[in-house]
Write a protein that binds this DNA or RNA. Structure first.
Lengths: 239, 239
DNA sequence: CGCGCAATTGAGTCGACTCAACGTTGGTGG
DNA sequence: CCACCAACGTTGAGTCGACTCAATTGCGCG
């Protein structure tokens, strides 16, 4: 169950056999969700954290007028609410964007990890820090890039993150988001989202059919996105 | 030197005398910066992390066309680049927005903390998680709120965060940002930033003179901002 | 076949941008 | 002491991006 998590963490530093073993023991109780279901409800105080084993999920907040903003996208190998271990109260919801398989980890066990396994603790901390980096990259894209560039950036990021957990197929990957859901990622209206997608298609940068993204020109897409993967901390080094 | 850090951390959980002592011992080497200087340079690999003791600082990224987006604002008591301890390479710069006093903490010492003081480690981890929460709140404000609401949200947040470290004076606080710097926070042009500020003034929600913000109507400002401080995790509880 | 959902297109409006100019203030040097 | 400059703030005018409302198309499934 923790295979994608290992692919994820070992991208940043080596893990010992013991550490892999501990992860295997603390991630238990598989749960399944169907698309649209909430993995975690805003305002709740979960006693465990959810490791996404398969599928796509999103963190989101709703505004008073009922608009939704997605603040993060999660793929296999992501600990979607590890931060709840210390934040305690969820300030946002987490929704399944596709059928999802999830492994649960009790906060009590995570606490034991922090008391006995400092390096593993740092690796989990790192995981939350990388999601913080991703937030910052999104803020820059939202504030200072064109919408086409913002979309390109998100697709570059997803391509790289999915590659780490072996969910890409040469230049394409499965992306089970509707245009309306993607609009909630970029903070756009559905109509305008559609038009932005079409500009990337018209430029032959991507194709997007049947929930499949194909990157037609990686170099130009990266250029449009100003994508620099440094923020994903993909190098393995002592942490 | 660590007083504002203690005010900050003790907002979230109690610290033991020993923990306070350790913080005092690992935060050393005071440094001063003048407004406009970089505390940390993008792309660098700092060997220590900076605790902001006094002043205002901002994390930022530059786009290819030279535009700047500020991704976080920091006040006294914030560990502005604690994440560099594990991320290693800075994916963004940190600039002083006013004269700043900073305390430095070696990463080697932080590593020792993670090996010997699990609760203190969790508190530092929590600090980075809260900054992640703030990032998410900003993403929502950027994506789904009007610019006036976004500005109101940032002012509410600053008022609360500055209150925690005792940097407010009844309903006002010192904010040494120019409108142009604030434009880099919201992702706006300078001209439009000015107009947005004027709408909040016209509504008698705030005044902003001589680098001083005064909140004239907290209830309505909160309402315009849809400000809910949950994301700042201000309750003290075992972590 | 026809319903329902997702994607697409058109038209009109409003928000945010740029370019440009002017006002205000504080600091500097002749 | 005053003239000047630089930085910040403010205002006006015209353009373009993103929105809403509305209608249409495409597709999968009962």
């Amino acid at each position: 169950m923790i295979d994608p998590l290992l692919l994820n963490l070992e991208q940043h530093d080596v893990l010992t056999d013991e550490e892999r073993d501990i992860l295997r023991r603390i991630v238990v109780r598989e749960k399944r969700f169907s698309a649209g279901e909430d993995l975690v409800v805003e305002g709740s105080r979960p006693g465990q954290s959810s490791l996404l084993v398969e599928g796509f999920a999103a963190r989101y907040k709703l505004t008073a007028e009922g608009m939704r903003q997605i603040t993060a996208l999660h793929v296999a190998g992501d600990f979607v609410d590890l931060h709840a271990f210390l934040l305690k109260t969820m300030d946002h919801g987490v929704v399944a964007l596709s059928p999802c398989r999830v492994g649960l980890s009790d906060h009590a066990d995570l606490k034991i990890v922090t008391e006995r396994y400092p390096h593993l603790t740092r690796m989990l901390w790192l995981d939350t820090l990388i999601h913080g980096s991703i937030h910052r990259a999104w803020i820059v894209a939202m504030g200072r890039r064109s919408k086409a560039s913002h979309l390109a950036h998100i697709l570059c990021e997803l391509y790289v993150r999915l590659g780490v957990v072996r969910r890409t197929d040469s230049w394409s990957f499965h992306l089970p988001l509707s245009q309306s859901e993607m609009a909630d990622v970029l903070g756009l209206s559905l109509v305008h989202m559609n038009r932005v997608i079409q500009t990337l298609r018209r430029e032959s940068l991507i194709s997007w059919n049947n929930q499949t993204i194909t990157i037609l020109d990686w170099e130009r897409l990266k250029e449009v996105a100003e994508f620099d993967p440094t923020y994903l901390s993909l190098s393995a080094e002592p942490r």
